[in-house]
Design a protein around this nucleic acid. Sequence first.
DNA 1: GTGAATGTTAACAG
DNA 2: CCTGTTAACATTCA
Length: 243
Amino acid sequence: MPEGPSLVYLAEQMQPYVGKIVTKAGGYGEMEKSWLKGKKLLEARSWGKHLLLRFANGTIRVHLMLFGSVLFNKTKKVNASLYLQFGSDLVNFYVVQAKKLVGKLDSIYDWRTDIMSSEWKPAVVRKKMKDYPDSFIGDLLMDQEVFTGVGNIIRIEVMFRAKIHPLSIVGKIPAEVINSLLKHIRSYGKEFLAEKKAKTFGKNWEAYGQKECPRDGQTLKIKMVGRTKRKTYFCTHCQELYK
DNA sequence: GTGAATGTTAACAG
DNA sequence: CCTGTTAACATTCA
C-alpha cells in the first residue's frame, strides 16, 4: 500500500470527512484518543508516507508501515488499531502506527521535498543531495528527508527510467542525469497515483518485479545492493554506473 | 506451510 | 560514542 502516491490517494479519500465531527475514536493502538471526541476534522493531507489528520487541538499522524490498510464503512475480522466514527460513518485503520502531533504542520514538515506535493522543489532536493556526495544513489533515494515519499518501487522504477545504476555515487552523477532522475520521480509518482485509482497498479512496471530488461532483454539483477536492505532490480547493461 | 512483500525503529553488538 | 546488524511489529498473497 504505502508509498507517497498511495498516501495522496488516501488523503483524497478522507476529504468527505473534512468538516465532520469525530463522535467516537478508538482502537488498540497506543495513541491517546480522548482528545479527539467532539472535534472537527479540519484538514486531511499527506507528507510522504504520513497521513495527516488535523484538528484544532492536534494532528493525527498515521503511518501504514508495510501492512497498513484503511476501510471506509467496512470492517475486517481483526481489530482496528485506530478507528474514527463521524456520526454514521466509520473509518477503520488496520495495523497502522498513529501518533499525535502538536504544533503547526508547516513548522514540522518541509513540503518542498515531498515528491507528490504542489510545493515540491527540485532545486531544494538537488541542494540536499549535495550533502551526501559519497552515498550510493540507491540508498539515498530511500532517505525520507531528501526524497520524501519514495519507497522501494519508486526508487527502482526511477533509477531504471533515468538509466542510473543503483551503486552510482551521488557526487559523480552528471547534473543532467540528476535532472532526468528528478523529472522521472515526479512523473512516475503521478503515474503511480493514476494507476492506483484505475486499479492498474503494477501492470506497467519496467524493472520492479521483472525478470528481464524491457529495453535490451538482458536478465535483470535482483539483489540487495548498498546498505538498503531491500531487493533491488536493475539492468547492468543499460543503467550506467557513475563512480 | 513457507517466504516474501510498497516500512520504520528500538535494541543490541562491536 | 558511533555504526552497523538484528529483531520486532503485524497481514496478505503466491
